[in-house]
Write a protein that binds this DNA or RNA. Structure first.
Lengths: 355, 355
DNA sequence: CCCGTCGATGTAATCGATTCCACGAGCGCT
DNA sequence: AGCGCTCGTGGAATCGATTACATCGACGGG
């Protein structure tokens, strides 16, 4: 592979001049420029990004460590991250942690060794020493979706509280009273938050969330199946199962179906994280949709800000409820089954939260 | 960030010794080794992969350019590729071409500039000059799933012919005679091959594939919708629509449903590329499943072979039919609705292919 | 006409590793 | 005792770029 020296020789100039042409530095004669360009062309020369990075201490590369590539939510995130990064002149290297802290560390270490300019992470756990060190050491970093509290790292995420409240209103309005949740890992912020938001919203409606109705999942389909089976085995099974992510919802659907039961007639189902496939499942699944694309773009912008020396702020965007049919027919003969809707039912007045 | 010099200073040895310790070269005294290791530890030193790559001319990195990250088939492929690569000591950088040749070139160029050790590609088109040049220039390369003929590059793919024949047998057995296909882009091998395989299999059963029943798609959901609408507008619409990939099948499902028609009662649907979600759609979709994980692993092994100077062979694995309910109830009261089944119906004898 | 300035260019240092080569110490063998 | 090995080590070249600094010629103003 041709190097800058070969180009210099071919064009009859020094490597400095070649470099200047390539980085369009102003003081190069038109003559030299054309000769260099011709040499570049004829040799098919391409600058070696490795050498360039070594010298400039910049890789123009962002690392993105996500918890699970097979989860459509994260692939959409990855896609929007790459798009925005490309628009800003960065490449992205994706690391898939598969919800495993050790794999997450592997990728973080790998990315750090490659001297990426900045790191975007959706942490699988409460924070490995490695990541905390990196943050402290000043690696430009931004958390996306999930985060680790107490580190001075901006967080780009969506707030599901309002949407969860809407969901509970929806469930309440349909007459459901015994509701259960398949929680995510307690080590993740999203795992804890979603349970909290759900519990609070239920409280407004005078409903409780007994321990027996809180199943511990790990954001993977299999755990959704297992937890749901547990629910169905209860003396008094819940009327609704709310899965804290889309894959667990799928597992839940499997479990329900394996018993010969039907959604929503025998048990209702809702999920956090909407995905295109939910429109096509049987029945279409009511879900809380995050503005995934926006999150990815905002995260990249925040990271680019940090890298380029600007502040780089946290961003929180609202999620919204998308009502479909998995909790029961929402409203008689709804003409548009796949759109966000405001809850039609108010909580009992005495429980209504002030303001 | 600490460099090898800092470590050398801290340990009171030369950089050469530090390097030897790090690459566990035999001739280092036990004493020096422990001092170096202590220095590494106390400084939190990590070798700079950029510098190392420049010197050794190896990045231990594979590039993977896929046509569409949002397609579950490719994300599964990406996942298995990364896993196998990791097991073999390589990292993977994924580039998403989004079925756009220009984006594909962007990523290939980017990866080449980064001096990746080898390239795994599932080409979106017939082959850009860029990629052909790279292949000719001797970049270790392997095609996965799709390929470009005439370049001396190994191909790892699955052969759908037998499975397509099984599908046609299945359709024929259910009484379907007017069958249509939503084809992929003619520029891709898979786009062309699947149509060919389908046509040949139909022929064995004495069925034709008229032009009106061949719709031109682009492997994206939207095109599936559009083509299906065209089919439904025909004076004599087909009884079956076979989509050449999963996303187009989804689009087709949308289109059918938008007309108030039902699958499989009004029109049957089948797809190439099975994905977990097909179990959960309404109805579950009959599909041809590729051994995706195996393909990814085999591709990485072939590429590693090439990189490390071994031959690196092409691999072709069989796909298989997974019968579900989208083409009609397959067999009365099938106890196991989600498994591969041999076709129960033979073609009319006079058309049966010899051997 | 001379000198300062500016534009174009080349020389060489540098980034952080790896690795060839030389050197000195220690040891065994004759 | 002297020769030749091996072993451990350091010095320095090298990979392919960028860039500070030096140089040189041309040009314009006083």
């Amino acid at each position: 592979m041709a190097s800058i020296k070969d180009v210099a020789a071919e064009a009859g100039v020094s490597v400095a001049t070649v470099s200047r042409v390539l980085n369009d530095h102003p003081s190069v004669s038109a003559d030299a420029r054309t000769r260099v360009l011709a040499a570049v062309e004829s040799l098919g020369y391409r600058p070696n990004a490795v050498a360039r990075s070594l010298r400039t201490d910049q890789t123009h590369t962002l690392g993105l460590v996500i918890s699970d590539v097979m989860n459509p939510y994260f692939t959409e995130l990855a896609r929007s991250v790459e798009e925005e990064a490309r628009a800003l002149g960065y490449s992205v290297i994706i690391g898939n942690a598969d919800e495993r802290p050790d794999l997450q560390d592997h990728h973080v270490r790998n990315l750090l060794d490659r001297r990426i300019d900045g790191l975007l992470v959706s942490p699988t756990d409460g924070g490995s020493p490695l990541m905390l060190d990196a943050a402290r050491a000043g690696t430009p970093m931004v958390f996306v979706d999930r985060w680790i509290p107490g580190v001075g790292v901006p967080v780009v995420r969506s707030d599901g509280r309002a949407a969860v409240r809407d969901l509970v209103a929806h469930l309440y309005g349909l007459g459901h009273r015994r509701v259960a949740i398949i929680a995510g890992p307690a080590a993740t912020t999203t795992g804890r938050e979603r349970v909290e938001a759900f519990r609070e919203a239920l409280q407004e409606y005078g409903l409780g969330l007994p321990d027996a109705y809180i199943g511990q999942g790990d954001f993977q389909a299999e755990s959704g199946r297992r937890v749901t089976e547990g629910f169905l085995d209860l003396a008094e099974p819940p009327e609704v199962v709310f899965a804290a992510d889309n894959l667990m919802a799928l597992g839940a659907l499997d479990a329900v179906r394996a018993r010969g039961l039907r959604v929503p007639d025998d048990i209702a189902l809702a999920a956090f994280d909407d995905i295109p496939w939910f429109v096509h499942t049987d029945p279409p699944i009511t879900a809380i949709a995050q503005p995934t694309g926006e999150l990815g773009r905002a995260a990249v912008r925040a990271l680019a800000d940090r890298i380029e020396g600007r502040p780089g702020e946290s961003v929180t965007l609202p999620a919204r409820l998308v009502v479909r049919r998995s909790c029961g027919e929402p409203y008689p003969a709804s003409p548009e089954p796949d759109s966000a809707q405001a809850p039609a039912v108010q909580p009992p007045a005495e429980n209504r939260s002030h303001r």
